[in-house]
């Protein structure tokens, strides 16, 4: 992940050379407050070590960086995917509420995993239980990622649901979105963090509603395989 980010940053290095051209015509970065040649900050310590080892840092010496965002730190508790997930949970810009909900959910995950851990009789069973809620989260997201997707394509006046492969980014988005949707779909007496924790644990064990949703989608794609050629013809 970090490597991908540094590569993206290096790409923006080349933009500097076209700086004047970009400024003279229409600004290419939309409504951004920063000039187009500013690069994104590389704020994680390990990413920086890598940068200085392979000598790329020298190339950045003359290029200004954007300020690190309000939710980016070099702390060990920082995680890119969790930051993304938190932002997907967020409604109407209430970031602290989103953070509170997610932290509560992680706490619930930790508690229920610990409970399971202490209930387990044998050493073997105990080793199987993942206690770190972050790890549980990553496993859950990975397990819910679809590889195919149905997209409507119109051929001869009829709309066909055509299975298409999806990108890594989109599949991650769908997986996270489904997890949040599953957690929001609940009774009034149950709180969001509780339900989210439940869904996360379920998904990390490759069971539960979200994984089933993914499998349903895959099954439907399989059923519609006859339409696959509509992608290109």
């Amino acid at each position: 992940m970090a490597l991908v980010k540094t590569l993206a940053n290096l790409k923006s290095v080349q933009i500097l050379t076209n700086k004047l051209a970009a400024l003279s015509v229409v600004q290419q970065n939309g409504m951004s407050m920063y000039p187009p040649y500013y690069i994104n900050p590389i704020f994680k310590k390990d990413a920086q070590v890598e940068l200085f080892e392979n000598g790329e840092a020298q190339k950045l010496a003359h290029i200004p960086t954007k300020a690190a965002l309000i939710d980016q730190t070099c702390s060990i508790y920082y995680d890119d995917d969790i930051r993304l997930f938190r932002n997907y949970i967020m409604r109407s810009g209430r970031k602290s509420l989103a953070r509170e909900l997610l932290d509560k959910a992680f706490e619930k995950v930790k508690r229920s995993q610990l409970e399971k851990f202490h209930k387990a009789k044998t050493e073997e069973d105990k080793n199987k239980i993942v206690l770190d809620p972050r790890e549980v989260f990553h496993m859950a997201v990975d397990n819910c990622k679809p590889v195919l997707f149905l997209t409507p394509i119109k051929r001869g006046g009829v709309k066909y649901q055509v299975p298409v492969p999806i990108t890594e980014k989109k599949s991650q988005f769908l997986s996270m979105k489904w997890l949040i949707e599953a957690a929001t779909d609940k009774e009034r007496t149950v709180h969001f963090p509780e339900k989210l924790a439940y869904e996360l644990i379920d998904a990390s064990n490759n069971t539960g509603r979200v994984v089933k949703r993914k499998q349903d989608l895959h099954r439907q794609c399989e059923a519609n395989r006859a339409y696959a050629h509509y992608r290109w013809s």
Partner: peptide, 12 residues
């Protein structure tokens, strides 16, 4: 220099 690359010294 590291702080600068980390985006700490840029005024937002």
């Amino acid at each position: 220099e590291k702080m600068r690359i980390a985006g700490l010294l840029t005024r937002d």
